[in-house]
């Protein structure tokens, strides 16, 4: 009995030591920087997106949106999202200038009024178009927005992955932490578990159907977000990815919102 307790103690202690030995903020940051640098140079991208929203009974509704992204140099990326359906939001456009450290700058274009409206970006935890994606989920992911902790290596769907904890720097984030599975060869994200502010598992995002563009840049063609607390699900199905299309920064100024159609 004593022996069993002692060996249990040894096992627990060595497990703690093992975790202490492998969990590493430095390695987490290194991996995040490497993943970011592997995507450097895409210039700009465009894609057509079908957003499929499903409630817990499996009833679904669809939206069509277009996405344009411009790679940032010193600052974060700039992105433009244009809504094509449903009909009542047709022509609405959302422009975001991502900041590495500060809050992002965001504007909304309302086509009926021809009005460009600056909006507060602190609703980052709020749902994007009533979906299970929040504004911060769809925002461009900058290295500076998190602190990192490499946890372990683990196989996911047969792929060797790093498992890394991302802790949002911004206290207005809806998450306490995110656990990210990233493959060790191409540094592509395959799965993210999102934990809410109370540290309860809130959502899981799976990235599927990766394709490589221009011999370098990987883009997923299907993102599936499941909300464990509500049973709702949102899918983003990407089509027609194009990179280095020749758009300029001018296409991402706030005045460009009026001519997005």
């Amino acid at each position: 009995m004593k022996l069993a307790a002692a060996s249990m103690f040894v096992a627990v202690a060595s497990a703690c030591l093992a975790t202490a030995a492998f969990a590493s903020p430095e390695k987490g940051l290194e991996i995040a920087i490497e993943a970011d640098s592997r995507d450097k140079g895409f210039g700009d991208s465009t894609a057509q997106i079908t957003m499929i929203l499903m409630d817990k009974y499996g009833q679904s509704t669809e939206r069509a949106i277009r996405n344009r992204t411009f790679e940032g140099d010193n600052e974060g990326d700039k992105s433009l999202v244009i809504f094509d359906s449903p009909g009542d939001v047709r022509g609405t456009a959302f422009l975001s200038h991502t900041k590495k450290a500060d809050s992002d700058d965001q504007w909304l274009y309302l086509p009926a009024l021809k009005r460009v409206k600056r909006i507060a970006s602190s609703n980052k935890a709020g749902p994007f178009m009533g979906s299970e994606f929040s504004y911060e989920d769809i925002a461009s992911q900058e290295v500076e927005k998190y602190t990192y902790n490499y946890l372990r290596d683990e196989k996911l769907n047969g792929l060797d992955c790093f498992v890394i904890e991302y802790d949002p720097v911004d206290p207005k984030s809806g998450y306490k932490r995110q656990i990210v599975w990233m493959d060790t060869t191409e540094y592509r994200v395959h799965k993210i578990d999102f934990y809410d502010r109370k540290d309860a598992l809130l959502k899981t995002l799976n990235y599927e159907n990766y394709n490589q563009y221009l011999g370098k840049f990987w883009r997923s063609n299907r993102l599936v977000m499941i909300n464990h607390q509500t049973g709702k699900k949102t899918e983003l199905v990407f089509a027609d990815w194009k990179l280095q299309t020749g758009m300029t920064e001018r296409d991402f100024e706030k005045s460009a919102l009026k001519r997005t159609r």
Partner: peptide, 9 residues
Amino acid sequence: AQYTGDVTL
């Protein structure tokens, strides 16, 4: 003029 704060405009 518009000032856009975290929660205050």
